[in-house]
Design a protein around this nucleic acid. Structure first.
Lengths: 151, 151
DNA sequence: TTAATTGCAAACGGTTTGCATGGGC
DNA sequence: GCCCATGCAAACCGTTTGCAATTAA
């Protein structure tokens, strides 16, 4: 395994349970939601009240750089984070975002077809534009049923 | 035509050419780039130096609410804006974003196939989740050729 | 002992708001 | 005259940075 010393221990929950990095990984492992840095911070201080918000940001940045965590921006003015391989989440999913209440639904409908097309597109784009593509996002924006009733 | 009084005049360039709204529309019409509020502001004060950045934000917000402008968030910590029907831009396109230098390429490869699938997906999602879907975004993230050489 | 990790407070940068002025109808 | 549009300055808020203290290897 490559990377810094602690990377290979990321999923070893027996290791120094109160280390901020372990706490944050645990929080992300135990949710199927898209948490913001603040969400994670609020949850983290329940386990270790001395954790700082700065550490949460730095940890998330580190994790997203090494690909353990994926950072999303749904246009709310704050980032949201997901564990890349979350056992509680559908493997490959995309997002359906309510522009009103900001709720997010993960969907997997047509992902197989989608994936096929995306792979094809990715390959073509890589060659045509000489891009080294890491990942893609597909978001649908609209208004959820609850918000539609209220309006 | 529905909407506020000035909406029907959006494309009437003879009308009060120094009004901030007209200036901003002109700027967006004459570029094929994804401009940030600041980009637009810097361009706008060349035409009318008394325009304020606040007005740029308020105008863009208004335009994106009525669907004249689409707001994008590529995860840079700032929003970028495109005219929905920009004559200089490809009709329906998606984005290829360099995570390093933040350059954005509009691509149209496979858009027809993509569009077909997206329409199908959109319809299915609308029904399944009772969402009223307005639009979608597809972004590929990777590293462009220039940045790859530098690293 | 040496480098990495962390918390605090302050800075930062994009965006929004309060408020008073100005311009169109 | 009334309402909407606008500019300015200040507030806001998520995020980043400088720095000193702590911890791990």
């Amino acid at each position: 395994m490559r990377g810094p010393w602690w990377q290979k221990r990321l999923y070893d929950f027996g290791y120094r349970l109160t280390s901020p990095r372990q706490i944050i990984i645990n929080i992300l492992r135990n949710t199927d939601k898209h948490l913001s840095a603040e969400d994670i911070y609020i949850d983290a201080i329940k386990t270790n009240p001395s954790i700082g918000l700065t550490t949460v940001y730095r940890t998330l940045d580190l994790f997203s750089q090494i690909g353990v965590v994926q950072k999303f921006d749904f246009g709310e003015g704050r980032a949201r984070y997901e564990l890349t391989n979350n056992p509680l989440k559908k493997d490959h999913h995309h997002h359906l975002v309510c522009v009103n209440c900001k709720s997010i639904i993960d969907y997997t409908d047509f992902v197989n077809e989608e994936l096929e097309l995306m792979n094809k597109t990715e390959k073509a784009l890589s060659e045509k534009y000489q891009f080294n593509i890491f990942h893609h996002t597909i978001n649908f924006y609209g208004m959820c049923s609850k918000c539609r009733i209220k309006e």
